[in-house]
């Protein structure tokens, strides 16, 4: 399979989950495991253009697929606008859900460049965060969406020091 542009050819046990393949075999530990029932979304990656939960995906079934993980989102060291949005709008605290949250947000904005708040909230419904109450995650995605459209991001909630 191809992961973040690099092709890998490995033999794995059929029962190896994609998330464990990424983490243990390729050392890409940015993709996290937070549950066992496909609920938390910490393991979200993009396979062939679609966001999926890599904990509910056999590595063998991804043979030949194009996989993108959080490590592959920035280009040439430049943060992706979604990453920038999370930083600028305090869209993360402990950071554990963040890679999955970023991947879902990237996938959303690739399909819908101008989502409303409700659309953003539904798009990240499959990604649980216990720290932020999602408030600033929504702001982060709004920031990124504006940036990607070439617009000025909405002002932050807090006062900007002059």
């Amino acid at each position: 399979m191809t992961v973040n542009g690099t092709t890998y050819d490995r033999d794995v046990e059929p029962r190896t989950l994609l998330v464990h393949f990424l983490r243990e075999e390729l050392g890409l530990t940015g993709t996290h495991v937070g549950c066992d029932t496909s609920y938390c979304g910490a393991c979200t990656v993009i396979v062939d253009g679609r966001s999926v939960k890599s904990c509910t995906y056999l590595a063998v079934a991804a043979d030949g697929a194009d996989v993108r993980t959080v490590e592959g989102v920035a280009t040439d060291g430049e943060l992706h606008p979604v990453q920038e949005g999370f930083w600028e709008r305090h869209g993360l605290q402990c950071g554990f859900c963040t890679p999955g949250m970023i991947m879902s947000s990237v996938a959303l904005l690739e399909q819908n460049p101008d989502p409303g708040e409700g659309e953003i909230r539904h798009a990240i419904e499959g990604n649980l965060c216990r720290c932020t109450g999602y408030h600033n995650i929504v702001r982060a995605v709004e920031y990124a969406a504006a940036k990607m459209r070439g617009e000025e991001p909405p002002a932050p909630d807090w006062e900007v020091p002059s």
Partner: peptide
Amino acid sequence: LIRGEGLYVD
């Protein structure tokens, strides 16, 4: 953390 480089115990 936003690059996926944060190191947690696992």
